[in-house]
Amino acid sequence: MFFGRPSGIGDKGGHPIPQETDDRQTIGEERTVVSKGMLRSKGFVAAALALAMIGGCQSPPKPEDMARTSLQTAPADLQLLCAHAVAGTAQVDSTKVLPTSSRALDATSYSVDLDAGGRKFNCVVDSAGSVKSVTPV
């Protein structure tokens, strides 16, 4: 059972390349004519700035998030959202459904294994709390 698809994927195909991309290329070519030494120097500065910006973008976690475990399990509320979804799918009392393990699939989604009164299920949920699939195992 699937519930929709991840948003923002495959929605923008077929759009023409913006003209401004070509403008930037022209400006870059003009600069190479001026001075290769200057370009090397400016290139170095630009690279350093880019690295600094990347470093700056890696902001530290919020104080309340400054602890974790090396086992990348799903957050508790996401595990329980899966349990609720499985209870509906399996038509069993929610008190009989318990997550038994979980793991991160990627940066934004988790896989949760569940026991529903002896029947095994797998659930995929994203970090926004949207249950993507519930499948019997």
Binding site: P60, R68, S70
Partner: peptide, 10 residues
């Protein structure tokens, strides 16, 4: 044994 608590060193 793979589970290990980690904290962020600011």
């Amino acid at each position: 044994a793979l589970a290990q608590t980690q904290i962020y060193d600011a």
